[in-house]
Design a protein around this nucleic acid. Structure first.
Lengths: 338, 338
DNA sequence: CTGTTAGCGCCTTCAA
DNA sequence: TTGAAGGCGCTAACAG
């Protein structure tokens, strides 16, 4: 592919490359007529600025790198979509990078992005080894952590944006209490995840304040999947069961609960109310209609991009912004008033 | 952000930049010891090649642009994921660009990508104005159309990879016939979409050959959404209804059909069998379990990347590769044997 | 208003 | 085996 350069245009227009450059960047010191003539030739010849060359000088690429754990997961897909939309409003392009758990060589990915001279990086999800990554790369490129609640620990020297997991569960507890539920189960506690620990604490604390009984079912599988939810719920439903509501630690678990209920003839919400956490797209489906807590991907994305932009445009590093966003209750049809 | 350059390293190592360059690109003409010493200093100083500079010379960025209509649509999310995985195997990074229908200025997007000097572009989905785009940009950058069946028309001078929509419906018809269905409905024909026209033709042709009756319900809404499916199916179920199976032109329509059936007490598959088209993630959900035709995003992605790589590495343009991939039947629980 | 010169960071001749 | 010089396409001084 042969590309037309500023030099070609200069030759064709009979002017110097500087003049062409000025025309292109509408600089003030240029004769309007010359400018028009030059621009005409540019259009005619299909000239397109070589951004590589420009970035080489300005050391600004107007590209940010976005690292997602898995774009096929609906929450991250939504996040990606909104990041892109928002970044574009700032004149930025997104370079999207997925990491699969197997070959997850994040170091290589960071090296690549920095070599590519991206202006900043959005690292989403709670990736193992994040701290190490920050220590190694934060000096070389602005980084903002997204949807990673560990980063809210004051010991983490970094900027981050995350939904408030604690407040989310609080919301769920208050909602169930408002519907008259007194005896509920928290299904799917994962001790390996900081986010889940927070969710659990928020729920238990609030339920306690409101005088509700809560029994916790742990999820030992280490994954919040539909099958995990299915298994946990089966055990729950097969034993004598007095609780009136279930708070599932994630929507996928909740879907598993729905399936178990189906199998065992437990009707939701008539016999048991169910509320999830995440508000993944599936939750809105006709046959699902799951009441849940939204992690508000759009708000997280917008805020994350903003924080990153500020970081990019600020001179002094070493000052970090942290945002904890309020989650939102999405009421659908899996909870009923007692 | 101050970056270490090859020059800094040269100074620190007491050699010339050329030598450093040779060490970095493991060129043969260099003393192994010098090389080690230089590389040590590079590591120590956190040197990272400036790919902008390198690309400026090589005029290869090892980046491809991928344009998606909507990353939040499960099919395209899956496509993106696999494109990225596959491109990486070729040593390529992906620059992902979503286009929202509103501001869909594809010309600007193409200009940007070309300015960014991406080595090639994957344009996915059936975007209006594709022909015009090809005419304008194909000379400047290798382009491959993905999941756009219009491009299979021989009048289109371009490379493309697409699932065989005709064969997909054929599969559906044969499957229903095999189960003993003789009288079926094709639900959701959209005359504005070439893909849908093909799906319809494939179904009707095959049904005819097999001696089945097929009645077609058109979808006038112009969108294959859940609500569209819901409305069409309501009308269908409320009138006297003798058919034993429904082929929905897309999975979203099928989800609408499921909801209508639920509402009106029609049980699937006991009273009516249902088969969709797409195999979106939702289709596999516990409470859905929709039998459908897969568009095989992984295969489409892999093939598309391959074709693009060949195009990038070949000298002569003007020769186009087209691939029509075979779809696959995904049997779940919404069809029954008569 | 316009052109000349220099340089961004790197690679590639060509000489030493 | 090493280095010096030139240039990729562009912008930014500084003269004219």
């Amino acid at each position: 592919m042969k590309h037309v350069t500023i030099k070609d245009i200069a030759r064709l227009a009979g002017v110097s490359v500087t003049t062409v450059s000025r025309a292109l960047n509408d600089a003030p010191e240029i004769n309007p007529e010359t400018k028009e003539r030059v621009l005409d030739i540019c259009r005619q010849e299909g000239y397109r600025t070589n951004l590589l060359a420009r970035s080489l000088i300005s050391s600004r690429t107007h590209v940010i790198g976005v690292i997602l754990p898995d774009i096929a997961e609906p929450f991250y897909a939504a996040l990606a979509l909104h990041i892109e939309t928002c970044a574009r409003q700032f004149g930025y392009q997104v370079m999207l990078c997925g990491i699969r758990s197997e070959d997850g060589d994040l170091n290589a990915l960071f090296d690549f992005l920095i070599s590519q001279r991206v202006d900043g990086i959005l690292l989403t999800g709670a990736v193992p080894g994040t701290r190490e990554l920050l220590r190694r790369y934060q000096a070389a490129v602005p980084i903002v952590l997204l949807a990673n609640c560990m980063s809210m620990d004051t010991a983490w020297e970094c900027s981050s944006v995350c939904i408030d997991n604690y407040a989310g569960s609080r919301l769920a507890a208050q909602y169930l209490h408002g519907l008259g539920h007194q005896d509920v189960v928290y299904l799917g506690l994962r001790r390996d995840s900081f986010a889940h620990l927070l969710r659990h604490k928020g729920f238990v604390d609030t339920a306690g304040e409101l005088g509700m009984q809560v029994s916790t079912v742990e999820n030992p599988t280490g994954r919040s999947s539909i099958v995990a939810g299915l298994q946990l719920a089966r055990e729950l439903f097969l034993a004598p069961f007095r609780q009136t509501a279930i708070f599932a630690a994630s929507d996928l678990l909740a879907l598993g609960v729905l399936q178990a209920a189906d199998e065992l003839g437990v009707s939701i919400p008539e016999q048991v109310s169910l509320i999830g956490f995440d508000n993944i797209d599936y939750a809105a489906l006709p046959k699902i209609r799951l009441t849940t807590i939204s992690r508000r991907p759009e708000a997280v994305a917008r805020s994350g991009v903003q924080v990153l932009m500020e970081l990019i445009n600020s001179e002094d590093r070493g000052e970090y912004t942290r945002k904890l966003l309020a989650p939102a209750l999405v009421e659908r049809q899996t909870c009923r008033r007692l």
